[in-house]
Amino acid sequence: MLTGCKVGAIVFFVTDLGRSLAFYRDTLGLPMQSLDGHDGPWAMGEVGELTLVLIPRPARAGDTPVVVFSLDGGIDDYADALAARGVEIVVPVSEAPDGGLSLDFVDPDRNALSLYQPAGAARRK
């Protein structure tokens, strides 16, 4: 039924919109913007062909699926930068099942996020 579809958006319910917007925009460097909608403030940003949406509403940690951001290399540089910004790393850089590398961390609401780079890509840029 979903053959040929791709993920177009990921919605995160967040407890503090300002804090989460700052995390995604300022800490991770994603092009996020704050918006006003018919139900109040929210935020969104385009990351490649994917739209990230932040909606202020109490969230239960772990209810959100893991979102994987693909890298073409430099995963150790990203790990260092995240740690330097106080981001909680829950699984350090480790081998992924296909031989690539992954790193798992959480946002301020403990939504699970992951970085992935394919096998053979340089660990540092």
Rank of each mutant, 00 (worst) to 15 (best):
S34Q: 13
A84S: 12
V53P: 04
D76W: 00
L50D: 06
E49P: 07
G48K: 04
E95D: 00
P92M: 03
G37N: 09
A96D: 03
P92E: 04
V87D: 13
G99Y: 00
V90D: 09
G62K: 02
L52M: 14
G29W: 12
R60K: 03
M32I: 15
M44S: 15
F69Q: 05
V91M: 15
L50V: 13
V53C: 04
V67G: 07
L54Y: 14
D36L: 07
S70C: 02
D76M: 05
V66Y: 11
E95C: 00
D39V: 09
P97N: 01
M44K: 14
V90F: 10
I89W: 08
L35P: 07
V93N: 00
T51K: 15
G100D: 00
D98E: 01
A61N: 03
D39Q: 10
A59I: 12
L52V: 15
L82V: 07
R57A: 08
A81V: 06
V68F: 02
L82C: 13
G73N: 06
E46D: 13
V53Q: 08
T51S: 15
D36E: 08
P65D: 15
G74S: 10
V87S: 14
L52D: 09
D36C: 01
L28A: 02
W42D: 02
A83T: 12
V53R: 12
A79G: 03
G86R: 13
V66A: 12
V68S: 05
D63G: 03
V53E: 10
L30T: 10
A43V: 06
V66H: 08
T27E: 10
P56A: 06
E46C: 05
G29L: 07
M32R: 15
E95A: 00
G48N: 04
S70V: 08
A96K: 00
V66P: 11
M32H: 15
A61H: 09
V90R: 14
R60P: 00
D39R: 12
G40D: 10
V68A: 01
G48W: 03
V87Q: 11
V68R: 09
I55M: 13
T51G: 11
S34H: 07
T51N: 15
Y78D: 12
D36R: 08
M44N: 13
Y78L: 14
R85D: 12
T64I: 00
S94M: 06
E95M: 00
A43D: 04
G45E: 01
P31M: 11
G73T: 03
V47G: 02
V68L: 03
I75E: 04
D77Q: 11
I55L: 12
V91A: 15
D36V: 05
G86Q: 09
R85V: 04
E88T: 14
R85G: 05
E49Q: 11
V67T: 14
D80H: 14
I55Q: 13
R57D: 05
L28P: 06
V67Y: 08
F69T: 05
V67M: 09
M44W: 10
I75L: 06
A81K: 05
V47N: 00
G40H: 04
I75A: 06
Q33P: 07
M44I: 07
